[in-house]
Simulated scan of single mutants.
Amino acid sequence: MWIIHPLVNPELDHSKVEKSINIFNYFSGLTYSLAMILAWSTLYFSVNFYFRLVNEKEMHLAAVRLSHSAQIKMLRYQINPHFLFNTLNAISTLVLMGNKEKANGMLVHLSTFLRFSLDNDPEKKVVLYDELKALMLYLEIEKTRFDERLNIQLDIDEATKNLLVPSLILQPLVENSIKYSIAKMPSGGEIAIKAAVDETFLQLDVADNGPDGHASISKIHSNADAKAKGVGLRNIKERLAVLYPKHHQFMVQENTPQGLKVCIRIPIEASKE
């Protein structure tokens, strides 16, 4: 004998199951869709953020490069007016003294030197050989002023002549020695210029035999003479800091037996030409 429970309705149960399945499928599909939208949105914004970050970084690097370029040009071009002022004063003195031949010779050397300095891009380095040629032009001018009071000693390692250096890096150092040491000596003034390879560095030395080397060092370190010596030594220090950040040395020390010595150590960089 079959007994049917009054609460059991197969048709009603089947309908409820289908409805539950539909609701489950609906929410599953909705959840999947939301998850996909969230995933694609996350991917889109991540990629967009990455490209914005790269673009901002490129803009920052471009700004740094422009700042670097402007700073190098500013520091390099500080040298010319300073040197030009001193040289024109010397030429004017020669003219007033009636020594037209020497004044004319200085003007010729001055024009050649300025042509060299203006033809070279301040941001580009030059081989040491060309730097020394420019320095000799400058020294010809100073030899006209000081005659036998100024002697130059060169000790240039052959291996250094094709290495790259910042243009006009030596001239301010020599000018500093002449102005603050040689000019104070009645005779026997000497400037020694040396270039040598030391491990992975190029070392450049400019030394003089001035009478007050120790006093000059004290003034430099105490900044008591910053205004007078700033254009020369400070300019070199700032240029080196920009060109070789944390990869250079700039030392001022007493020379033996007397005078002042400036030592520069920069990474070896060979010319590609």
Rank of each mutant, 00 (worst) to 15 (best):
F45W: 15
L114M: 14
A70H: 13
F83D: 10
V174T: 10
A183G: 03
L114G: 03
K143F: 00
A103L: 13
E11C: 00
A134W: 01
Q78N: 10
T93V: 08
T256Y: 04
G98L: 01
N223G: 04
L114F: 08
E148S: 09
R239T: 08
G210Y: 06
S167F: 06
Y77K: 15
K272A: 06
F85M: 15
V242T: 14
L154E: 13
P267T: 14
K179V: 03
T144D: 00
I264G: 04
H109E: 11
A183M: 00
S69C: 06
E101Y: 08
A183P: 01
D119Y: 02
K184E: 14
K100T: 08
Y77C: 07
Q78K: 06
I79M: 11
T160Q: 05
K133Q: 08
G210M: 09
G189M: 00
L164Q: 05
M251I: 10
N55Q: 09
W2C: 00
F27K: 02
V165T: 07
I79F: 07
A103G: 15
H248Y: 14
L75I: 15
R265S: 10
Q258E: 11
K179M: 06
K133F: 03
L139S: 02
Q78V: 00
V206H: 03
F250P: 09
S177T: 11
E190T: 09
P81Q: 10
I4L: 08
I37T: 13
K16Q: 11
I178R: 01
G98F: 00
L118T: 07
L154A: 09
E254N: 12
L164A: 09
E101V: 03
A134H: 02
I72Y: 12
L243Y: 00
